[in-house]
Simulated assay, not measured.
Amino acid sequence: MNGLGATAVGIKVKDGVVLAAEKRMSYGGFIMSKAIRKVFKIGNRMGMACAGLYADMQTISRILENQVRYYEISMKKEMKVRSAARFLGVLLYSNKMFPLLTETVFGGYDKEGAHIYVLDPVGSVVEERYSAAGTGAPLAIALIEKNYREDMSLEEAEQLAIDSIKVATSRDSLSGDGIDVLVIPVGGEPKTKFVPLS
């Protein structure tokens, strides 16, 4: 997926989860759009940040959103973050012969606390404290590795996510044009914001 270009990150702390991604859509050596949304809210407690083909990102976010909603209405209880991540893994695996070309950082909170899961295009599901995906991932993860602490505040985690994507966009020509951020506090409402690249 090296030609598809993107940088997406997720960071988990005690108080919640931060997901972020830049807004450039490129293919080959061309910039196709500077205003693509790669961060998706799933219900009121979960979200995902993606790198890869935009149509595939949209497809899996819509299917997952509908599945979570259906489960919670029919079962009358909240879906666990792990269950949602595993459903997404099954969805990706079931298309392995014609894969949905997306790397996904999925996160949220439930009764067990905050969670971050990383999924590849064929459905592997791995729980992490933080992760990065896309062509800018090596640059972003280097900054996160250096500065991450388990006792960080949610605000510090948000700033670290923003800084890591800024570092990636400064060196990865396939990433850029601003940052979408989704902050999901444990027990609170998710908040989205746009951060311009200065």
Rank of each mutant, 00 (worst) to 15 (best):
M1D: 10
M1Q: 08
L4P: 01
L4H: 07
L4M: 12
A6N: 03
G10N: 04
I11A: 06
K14M: 02
D15I: 01
E22V: 05
M25C: 13
S26N: 01
M32R: 05
A35V: 08
A35I: 06
R37T: 15
I42P: 07
N44F: 12
R45V: 11
R45Q: 14
R45G: 15
A49H: 08
A51E: 09
L53K: 14
L53N: 15
Y54C: 14
A55I: 05
Q58V: 15
T59Y: 10
S61A: 15
L64A: 09
L64K: 00
V68D: 04
R69D: 13
Y70Q: 12
Y70S: 13
Y70C: 14
Y70R: 13
S74N: 11
M75T: 13
M75R: 12
K76I: 15
K80Q: 12
R82G: 12
F87I: 02
V90C: 13
Y93L: 08
M97V: 11
M97F: 15
L100Y: 05
L100Q: 01
T102C: 11
T104C: 06
F106S: 06
D110P: 04
K111N: 12
G113E: 05
I116W: 11
Y117K: 02
L119A: 04
V122S: 02
G123C: 08
V125G: 05
E127Y: 11
E127G: 10
E128H: 15
R129H: 15
Y130G: 02
A132M: 02
A133F: 02
G136T: 07
I141P: 01
A142K: 00
I144W: 00
I144M: 02
E145V: 13
Y148I: 03
R149W: 10
D151Q: 06
D151C: 06
A157T: 00
A161H: 02
I162P: 01
K166W: 08
V167I: 11
R171S: 04
D172H: 06
S175C: 09
D177C: 08
D180R: 01
V186W: 04
V186T: 12
G188N: 03
E189N: 13
P190I: 04
K191T: 11
K191W: 09
K191L: 10
V195P: 00
P196F: 06
L197V: 13
